[in-house]
Design a binder for these strands. Sequence first.
DNA 1: CCTACCGATCGGTAGG
DNA 2: CCTACCGATCGGTAGG
Lengths: 203, 203
Amino acid sequence: MSPRRSAAESKETRAQIIDRARVIASVAGLDGVTIGRLAADLGMSKAGVLGHFGSKEALQLAAFAAAVDNFVRQVPATVPAAPPGLDRLRRLCGAWIHYLESDGTTPGGCLLASAATEFDGRPGPVRDAVAEATRRWLDVLAAEVHHAVDAGELARDTDAEQIAFELNGVALGTNQAVQLQRDPAAGTRARRAVDRILAAASA
Amino acid sequence: MSPRRSAAESKETRAQIIDRARVIASVAGLDGVTIGRLAADLGMSKAGVLGHFGSKEALQLAAFAAAVDNFVRQVPATVPAAPPGLDRLRRLCGAWIHYLESDGTTPGGCLLASAATEFDGRPGPVRDAVAEATRRWLDVLAAEVHHAVDAGELARDTDAEQIAFELNGVALGTNQAVQLQRDPAAGTRARRAVDRILAAASA
DNA sequence: CCTACCGATCGGTAGG
DNA sequence: CCTACCGATCGGTAGG
């Protein structure tokens, strides 16, 4: 009955809704996240679900933000705070590929990849959030490349944004190979492609 | 009133429905192709639209097949029947990138790319069609690589499937850069990436 | 290819 | 967080 307990429970319910929405979205897309289905899955009423967000769009934004959090936890956050440079960049790519191969918490594949094609043609806050998340990750990758150049491990004339573009392409191809083709060699191909990209840029 | 004219008109109507569905799908996804919207766009009744296909799934399959036809017309079919080898492979990749940069007939980007993430987690005939189309295109690319190896233009130990995987990744990254990031440098980056992949495999 | 209709589900609101 | 409800739209059918 205390407001504190009530608020904590509400927060927990909200978190459950968001995580369930994130999982549904990975399979059915962010548009496939319907309030009725969430309510049925969680044993709640539709109004109970919607009350936490106010609109479907707000729910989609929350689910996508949770997918970004999940990506950060499984990729950059797993890389030890080692000195920046080529080794850390390699580890980052390795964690990325591992996440794409087997993210135990997202059955339908990387939501950043699928939301990009789902929303790229539809203006609005969701599209903006997806574009910004992708943009920021590409910037992180380019910054890592710069560190490796500064450390003398990659050639002085390396185009950091080009490397980020190419690594991102490898990731999107890996996601497709895993999810659509169910290609067991996807991870191996991905690691080989990353090695070749970084080798070509080596000092 | 002649049956012949009627049948021809019906075929034409059907073609119009399919092409409209293909365009809608490029923006809203294959699931975003609704019978009611098609009917409104084309000034027809819903039953008139549905009668040509029998079910929404059949309509989605027809729209996707039209997208594959469009891809073939804009990419492999634009490459002259030159002798197989590295030059033809380069031209093929150039046409592919050009199609991704500016397909005038598909406002929302390549449907092969978007349908892959839309349906990769949903079993059924549409998923099967998407997976097969992608598989076949990767096979075409690998075959072109083999030709270039046979011609002595690429190294004997070139892994043709690996090259196809990497080229496909470049294409998916290009599609994302064009459609989501609206990056005007996407085409340039894509051509540079392709050049590097083929240069690394050169004999 | 049409009108007229079906049950189901959609996002969302009122009121508690 | 619930019940009860709204108008709109969904895919699809009957019958012509």
